[in-house]
């Protein structure tokens, strides 16, 4: 069992879960799906620098071998942007739920659970 296999298979599993959830009908599931896909994409980008153990890209006179710093820089900003995107999509779905009383991605009427404080009948 190599780390390469672990990372590749984890990326595959995250993508599979992400695609499945992104195709569901409720907004929150789509958000979760996007989150999973984002993990996978960030890991994939990071992995393009290959897996290296114990050689962080902190420059030192005594060290001659480092991992590739460029994918790391790209992924660092990607993680933060992912947060921005997730936050925006979450708020968008919240607003759409508040406007329509439905958390269906296409705005169709769907049953909500009984204990929900924002049942659609609440709308005037």
């Amino acid at each position: 069992m190599t780390y390469e296999f672990l990372v590749a298979s984890a990326i595959g599993v995250l993508v599979a879960g992400g695609i499945y959830l992104a195709l569901r009908a409720r907004t929150f599931q789509v958000v979760l799906g996007l989150t999973l896909i984002s993990y996978a994409v960030n890991l994939f980008l990071f992995a393009s620098g290959r897996l290296v153990i114990g050689r962080p890209p902190i420059w030192d006179k005594a060290v001659s071998q480092y991992t590739d710093p460029l994918p790391q820089a790209l992924v660092l900003t990607a993680i933060v942007i992912t947060f921005g995107m997730t936050a925006f999509v979450v708020i968008l779905s919240l607003r759409s739920f508040l406007e329509t009383g439905s958390d269906h991605v296409d705005g169709d009427k769907v049953p909500c659970d009984a204990q929900d404080g924002l049942a659609e009948d609440a709308a005037p």
Binding site: A25, R26, T27, L94, L98, H104, V110, D113, D116
Partner: peptide
């Protein structure tokens, strides 16, 4: 604010 345990609809 969102539903916590909505029934599945697919």
């Amino acid at each position: 604010l969102l539903p916590k345990k909505p029934p599945a609809i697919s």
